[in-house]
Design a protein around this nucleic acid. Structure first.
Lengths: 129, 129
DNA sequence: CAGCATCCGCTATGATACTG
DNA sequence: CAGTATCATAGCGGATGCTG
């Protein structure tokens, strides 16, 4: 397992993509992060996740549930109560995701700097035109 | 650094997202994987990456270059030659990405199984209607 | 060869209103 | 409370033709 390129391309590109999409979409990672500590209710997640809509929360949770990463428990009460939690399988995803999250946190300054330098260089080129 | 949720939300959500987008989009990871071994030319990448268009290859490489992950070197020859390679900074991204890639490779069967079970359960519900 | 410009469809996401 | 249904839209990504 030396080459990452081979791993991405030779194994099962479509499957690889679909797994990456699950983790790479706009909300999954945040929700997994929130649920990593313990279970939460629908509205609780809605309040805690800034900017998410009910629709997107529903869809994202459904996808995570479909992949076996999140478990959904309905309590037949009135008013209804639904709890979401990360499954044992989902928890195996946490370490690699944390690794990526840590990289993002540690290097965001460097990235901002790179972007600024790049954009300034492009600006200079524009000035010459 | 215990809570992933806090890391995603409290630090700088926008920045966090933009870093994740870079790694989560359709082609970046594959290109980084291919370039991880050594430098490659534009057309070489085009041929080696199945399904990518010239437009997307250009855009993705530009973004990676802007973030300081990939270096672009132009050789003033005719016909022109351009080499792409992963920078030292970009290589620091490889380990966490590899971690995620490994998880995807190791667990894709489990995910497929989960999805099938979920879809079948949904199908059964439909039958009752 | 290594792009850039243009057009264009599709999907992801958001806003809003309604329901068991 | 925890959704579903519907509509609208923005941006991603593909196809194609042109150029230094």
């Amino acid at each position: 397992m030396r080459s990452m390129g081979r791993m991405c391309l030779e194994h099962d590109p479509e499957m690889f993509r679909s797994v990456l999409d699950r983790v790479g979409d706009k909300w999954s990672l945040i929700l997994i992060g929130l649920l990593d500590t313990g279970s939460m209710r629908f509205t609780e997640l809605l309040r805690t996740t800034p900017g998410i809509s009910r629709r997107m929360l529903t869809l994202t949770l459904r996808n995570l549930e479909r992949d076996g990463i999140v478990k959904r428990t309905v309590y037949p009460e009135i008013p209804p109560r639904v709890e979401y939690e990360v499954t044992a399988f989902g928890h195996t995803l946490t370490p690699p995701v944390l690794g990526l999250a840590r990289w993002a946190a540690e290097n965001q300054d460097a990235i901002v700097a790179h972007r600024r330098a790049y954009d300034e260089a492009a600006g200079d080129l524009d000035d010459v035109e």
